Amino acid sequence: MIALPADPRIHAAIEASVGRVVARADGLGPGFAALCGALSRATHGGKRLRPALVVAAFDSFGGDPAVAPGLYDVAAAFELLHTAFVVHDDVIDHDTERRGIPNVAGEFRERARVQGADDGGAALLGDAAAILAGDLLLHEALRLIAFADVDPVARELLYALLDDALYISVAGELADVENSILGERATSEDIFGAAFNKTAVYTFQAPLQAGAVLAGAAAPARNVLADAGGSLGLAFQLVDDLIGAFGSAEQAGRETGGDLRESKRTPLVALAQETPSWARVNDTLAVAHTGPIAVREAQVALEESGAPRRLRGLIDETLERVREASTDASLPARTGLLLRDLADGVERRIP
């Protein structure tokens, strides 16, 4: 677990933004009103990691909220960006639940069934609602940056960060799906590149830089933070891949071995593909969807291939780069400490 202090001002900014969407529901029909309710529920819960990183970086550079009153709106923008990606990702993965309850797509599938739709119609409405909810959240994230109470130079830099995060994350998600259908034709370079792009930039790199921008940090410090944030994000995603294969149900938020059941082409699988044990690993992955015994056989085959050990080694190397960057002379001592604490937090998540 990555522990950052909860800040009620982040929650208030998120609620205010979502409230603006809900306020537009009047006169737009019962369907849109229901969508606003589902969207509001989608933004509740979660760790709020990304907005917390914006505020933590801002504080570490000695930022003064009185000078940057738009801080919490900017932080909220990164949470709404994340929620938009999650809502769209559930459509891509055909998931109708999140955290054990119906997600936007699940709510609208049930809405369609209550109104008499068949399974095909229910799926169509569920997917359409989720796509549109994600679109609204993306709009709100951009709107928060556009209207945040910050100086014009900072706004331009912040918009560029969000712009890059959106484009790079979309490219990473698309590549991830493409790699999953290419199977063994997807190279390790492709798979590791997708892992970085779909998570590292919008989860760590951009939020940390945003906080630094708002605090008035100089370009050299922001550049160091960008590199360290990218490494943190990659390590975070690689740990997620280990959790998806070997983590407990509590860690993964679903049945253990979920990634194995879904035959996801993760960096872990890419490393296994490079070993002499690949044929056996591949055979066990092909049947992992059949139940817990098959999942356990796939886990054993992966461990015996040495791929998890290699992946843990790569995570260690990546986090070591973060710790080295934390001592850079351009960073305040508190920012260096923040980076080391984040690296320790990612490391503690390794199953």
Rank of each mutant, 00 (worst) to 15 (best):
G193N: 11
D190E: 13
N179I: 03
I181M: 10
E189T: 15
A195D: 01
L158Q: 05
A160F: 05
L138E: 14
E184F: 08
S169Y: 00
A129N: 00
L138K: 07
A194P: 06
G126S: 04
E178V: 03
L142D: 14
L157P: 08
E178R: 07
L161W: 12
L136T: 03
E189V: 15
T187Y: 10
F147S: 15
P152E: 13
I131E: 08
A175V: 05
L158D: 07
G193C: 04
G193A: 13
L142C: 15
G172L: 00
A160H: 06
G126C: 03
L137W: 03
I145F: 13
G126I: 00
L144R: 00
T187F: 04
L174G: 09
V177R: 06
G172E: 02
A141Q: 01
N179W: 01
A128I: 01
L182A: 07
A186M: 07
D135E: 09
E184V: 07
G126V: 01
L136I: 10
D176F: 00
R185Q: 15
G134R: 00
I191W: 00
L144C: 04
E178M: 03
V150E: 11
E173Q: 12
A194D: 15
T187W: 08
A130K: 01
L137A: 07
F192W: 09
G134I: 08
R185F: 15
A122E: 12
D164E: 13
T187L: 09
L136K: 00
V170Q: 13
L137R: 00
A123I: 09
D127K: 01
D151Y: 04
I131T: 11
L132I: 05
D135Q: 07
V150L: 05
A148H: 02
D127S: 03
D190K: 06
S169C: 10
F192Q: 08
A133S: 09
L138R: 11
R155W: 12
E156R: 12
I181R: 11
D190Y: 04
S180T: 06
S180I: 04
L137P: 01
G134E: 00
A194G: 10
D127G: 02
L136R: 01
Y167F: 13
I168L: 03
P152V: 05
R143D: 11
S180R: 07
V170N: 12
A194S: 14
D163S: 14
A148L: 01
R185K: 14
G126Y: 01
V150N: 07
D127N: 04
V153P: 08
I191Q: 06
S188R: 14
A154P: 02
R185E: 15
L136D: 02
V170K: 05
L161P: 11
L137G: 02
L182T: 03
R155G: 12
H139P: 09
L157W: 13
S188Q: 14
A160P: 02
I191D: 04
L158P: 01
F147T: 15
I181C: 13
R155L: 10
N179Y: 02
R143T: 12
L137I: 10
I131A: 13
L166G: 10
F192S: 11
A146Q: 10
R143I: 12
